[in-house]
Design a protein around this nucleic acid. Structure first.
Lengths: 192, 192, 192, 192
DNA sequence: AATGAATGAGGGTTCATTCAT
DNA sequence: TATGAATGAACCCTCATTCAT
């Protein structure tokens, strides 16, 4: 028996740039997800974060799931962009293993972001909605290395780095870069 | 009629074994967490799963967090036990890499459990409560391998397997055991 | 992502007579329905009418439909009781037609109640939930008259009175009792 | 390219026939009311049904009540038209009772419409807005019969048929036409 | 004149927690 | 000691209405 609303009096009604509002909400959504996790993400939290009224969330996104999905799409795109930038930087790298470790180190600098992305990545184990993001990461990363390492080593290195990042995230301890570089080198030698 | 025995007309209390009830609740909690995730775990769900009255949850665990923590402690202990069993089996293994992969393969058989443990493992990045579990896994696993591989290789192999399991979980695809075995072998060769 | 409730402070927590509360809620529900109609009946309105906190409504009745159904059950029972009283009074009546009209006249005295009952009666055309109430009325009324008028005339008289009451309700004009009595007499003569 | 004609890049307005739009909205309103009931009738539902933009509803009808009222006026007019057609057909009928029952039977064929009209008819007991519709039915029907049956019998027959239709609607059972015809005949005999 | 963006009140429901019994 | 009744905050979502464009 949905609500109605008697005589609401005066209401401001700002903006008028729907596209910007959609984007702002999606951005706010991903921030809230990063902070509280998907399960604690609410319309209210997203609206507050975006500095928009509550009604805006449901106006632009019929359900909370839609809102969350918009946030996830944003995160997925950011991940893809990240990987594209890695690709560029690895192309010009002389020593792949050390360049790779440098990239990962840098990536881990933004702890909040990494935590978000791994959260979503793992959550894909439960929630099919998140598969695209997980695949973006997994395949994107792998495709990055395959041309230089071959399929076998590429997979192994991706797993190694995935594990290392996960551990860094969980423990809060920085990567042991030299050791990691050595390990990558060992896995990569399959080629030779 | 009449008979002997106790007597009062009303005394709903069943169990007389408080410790057993605590344990039952903790066990139910971890099951609910495994099924719904921490965020969706409620008093009611745990009570229902344990077959105990709602009041029992707050009676034995002042807050929901306490109840969840009890579940987590249980999960941590289960993880430790798992690792102990691995230790026993690795001791008698001839070929460490293949034995290790076999263990991991088996472990991945119980998808639900693995998902739970990785959920909690990753959640430790956010929630200090979960550190003990994360450490139990990380150090326990590492300690398992160090005697045979040395510290450097042990860490690398743990990272590799952590990443491989994470990926198996997320993609739903089984491990590529031969490739994984090869990779471990390469990392382990640091010794020689 | 259901609500929770941080630290609610002190709360009164009255009563302790669940059965009484259930009944009070059902009674309040039927009153609200009588006043606003089913479609405008809300948890909040029922709780307010019953002088109980909002949470009581959902505590005793999982959904609003359940609450409404409880109200309807009450109304149905009241209707049955009304018909039983009619039965008693018709048994001792010398002249059936005029006794019948007198009953109907009296019944129409409580406009609010009649409006409620006809509302629900008609609503049964849409909502199967209300069938029991409609049948209680229709069959109860018919069964009342059959022994004295036979099946054919009983049906006709019930239809006539149903229509007359409906019209009185809608127009707000009192029954034309003498005319109605005459009409009943004519329909009843089928016997002779 | 370029061409002649109007020109502005943006001018979404379609129809140029305001009256037609008003009518379309009123028609859509009555359809929605028939389907969902007054209480569930919303701007959005009406706009969607009319294939018009949301803004059109409030543009042509300041409030939802106005929109609903417009629908009701339409329904009232339809009811009047129905009764006019009945008048024509009864004029040429040889046997009034059976002709009348035939008309009612036919009318009941369109269950949705009858339900709508009785809904509104009964709702008039609560909502003065609906009086015109109720009166249209009641007096229109009565006026139809009075010339042939006299005032007394006409009223009785209208009540009888009103009740019979109500019951058919509520129970979903078809009219018992022969019995009804007989009853009408009995009520009509007052003349002779 | 016409539209759809904007807003917030309200409504159903869930649940942590408190507490009388 | 043990239980389930009690409460209200918070949640998601719908929608009348207002208003910039």
């Amino acid at each position: 028996m949905g609500g109605s609303g008697a005589s609401p009096g005066r209401r401001p009604q700002r903006s008028r740039d729907p596209e910007a509002r959609r984007a702002a909400l999606a951005a706010a959504a991903i921030e809230v997800i990063a902070e509280l996790g998907i399960a604690r993400t609410t319309h209210r939290a997203v609206a507050a974060r975006a500095g928009l009224p509550l009604g805006a969330t449901t106006y632009y996104f019929p359900t909370l799931d839609d809102l969350v999905a918009a946030g996830l799409a944003l995160a997925t795109e950011a991940l893809r962009a990240e990987l594209r930038s890695w690709a560029g930087r690895l192309d010009t790298a002389e020593d792949l293993p050390s360049a790779l470790v440098r990239l990962v180190e840098e990536y881990l600098t933004d702890r909040r972001r990494v935590r978000l992305e791994y959260d979503l990545y793992l959550a894909a184990a439960r929630d099919p909605t998140l598969r695209p993001l997980a695949e973006a990461w997994l395949h994107g990363f792998r495709d990055l290395l395959e041309p230089r390492l071959g399929p076998e080593a590429a997979r192994a290195v991706v797993a190694l780095l995935d594990g290392a990042m996960l551990q860094a995230l969980v423990t809060g301890i920085d990567l042991d870069s030299p050791a990691l570089t050595t390990a990558i080198r060992r896995l990569a030698n399959s080629r030779s």
